[in-house]
Amino acid sequence: MIEDIELETLINDIYEYYGFDFGSYSRASLKRRVNRIYQLEGFKNFYEFLSKVRYDPEYYKNMIDEITVNVTEMFRDPAFYKAVRNEILPQLAPKPFIRLWHAGCSSGEEVYSMAIMLKEAGLLHKSIIYATDINSKVLETAKKGIFPLRMMKEYSENYRDSGGQEDFSKYYIANYGIAKFNEELAEKMVFSQHNLVSDNSFNEFDFILCRNVLIYFDNDLQKRVINLFDESLSILGFLALGTKETIKYSISTTKYKQLEKEKIWRKIK
């Protein structure tokens, strides 16, 4: 196990050499991730690891991709998607344009889930979905819309539990262990790198989703990010977080009204 002081040295070095600030990431998870790659590579000592990070930008880039937790699913938490389908989309439907932002979209499973629901609600043609992450590797996967075929059974069950009525398999083509999702779904998606720690608001949105990303941030960074979302959200727009995340430590809750039970808030002023 690496020492706390070693982790802090690494955080400082990464900031100094590459400008990326892990200083506000939750330490427990970060330490597990760093420890994992440190042991994977069989470094002689921590110093050797540090110099590799400092002087090998390729290694550093790879390391960032390894440190971030990218686990995701299609229609993860079906009850959440059901609420989006039944309660949020109908409220967005009258708009001439619908702008969505998935912040921390990982490999895109969530984004394709959303596109499927928008399509079924007849709204995809007038939507635009921005999907961002800091991890360049997962964004590449997301752009391709290719996911492991072995996951499709679970995803189609999730889809059905979320209120989906169609035959889920019509949305992808199965081929040698992969499922390639229809390109039509991706037409309205824009993927790009965006860092929630340091980048600013880049548009105004009607619906922002940032699920299971804030859990990796400490309270101060959560505050920053929630404020960034607040700036980027139109009045009466919606903000969705993961099932165990909350805005209550970050922003005055009089500005937001929570949808019963789900982690979805509406900006009311």
Partner: peptide
């Protein structure tokens, strides 16, 4: 501990959640 998350402990007596593998 909630389902589908790892439960971790932080300095300063708080808990955090993690969806890693």
């Amino acid at each position: 501990a909630p389902s589908n998350y790892h439960l971790l402990f932080e300095k300063g007596e708080t808990m955090s959640l993690d969806t890693s593998e």
